[in-house]
C-alpha cells in the first residue's frame, strides 16, 4: 500500500510539474524546438530545474541497499549505444516535432478532455503495441529494458 501511495504521489507531483511549467502545452514545446523562429526557452528552464533535483535524489540513495517500499533499485543496466537506441530516439524526435507532445505531457493533458489529445494518445498506444508485436515477431535483442 505504501508503495502504491508513493507512486501515486510521484505521479501527481510529476503532473503538477508538467502543468505548472507549461510543458503540457505543445505550442510551448514546439516554440523551444523552433530554433529558427521565436525561440521559447521554457523547456530549457524546466530541464534546469528537474535534472539537478533528480541527480540529488539518485546521489542521496547511492549508499542505500534498497528503496523504502520495494526490494531493490532497478537501474537500467545496458550501456551500449546500439542501433535501437539511435533509431528509436530519432523516430521519437520526429513524432515529437510533428505535434509537440511527448508521452508525459500527452498523458497528463488527457484529463483536460481535448479530442486532439485523445487521438494522439490513442496513436501513441498503437505505436507501443506495434513495437511489442514487432519485437515478438522479429526478436532483434534478448530482452528490452523499460524506463
Amino acid at each position: 500500500m505504501r508503495a502504491l501511495l508513493t507512486a501515486l504521489a510521484a505521479g501527481l507531483l510529476f503532473g503538477l510539474g508538467l502543468t505548472g511549467s507549461g510543458m503540457i502545452d505543445p505550442a510551448r514545446v514546439l516554440g523551444f524546438l523552433d530554433v529558427a523562429g521565436i525561440w521559447d526557452p521554457t523547456l530549457a528552464f524546466v530541464m534546469a530545474g528537474a535534472v539537478p533535483v533528480a541527480m540529488l535524489g539518485f546521489r542521496l540513495t547511492r549508499h542505500r541497499s534498497a528503496p523504502c517500499c520495494a526490494s531493490e533499485f532497478q537501474a537500467p543496466t545496458r550501456s551500449a549505444i546500439d542501433r535501437s537506441l539511435v533509431a528509436g530516439a530519432i523516430l521519437f524526435g520526429i513524432g515529437w516535432g510533428l505535434v509537440g507532445y511527448c508521452p508525459g505531457p500527452a498523458l497528463a493533458a488527457l484529463g483536460l478532455g481535448r479530442t486532439a489529445t485523445g487521438i494522439f494518445v490513442g496513436a501513441m498506444l498503437a505505436g507501443m503495441a506495434i513495437f511489442e508485436i514487432a519485437r515478438r515477431r522479429w526478436p532483434w535483442q534478448p530482452k528490452r529494458e523499460s524506463r
Binding site: G17, F45, A50, F58, T61, R147
Partner: peptide
C-alpha cells in the same frame, strides 16, 4: 518553468527512493 522542473525532478527522486524505479513515462506506460 524552474519550479515546475523542480517538481518533476522531485517526482523522479520520490519514485526512485521509494520504489527504486526510473520515472520514465514511456517505460512506465
Amino acid at each position: 518553468a524552474l519550479l515546475g522542473g523542480i517538481a518533476i525532478g522531485l517526482a523522479a527522486a520520490v519514485l526512485w527512493s521509494g520504489l527504486g524505479r526510473i520515472a520514465g513515462i514511456s517505460g512506465i506506460l
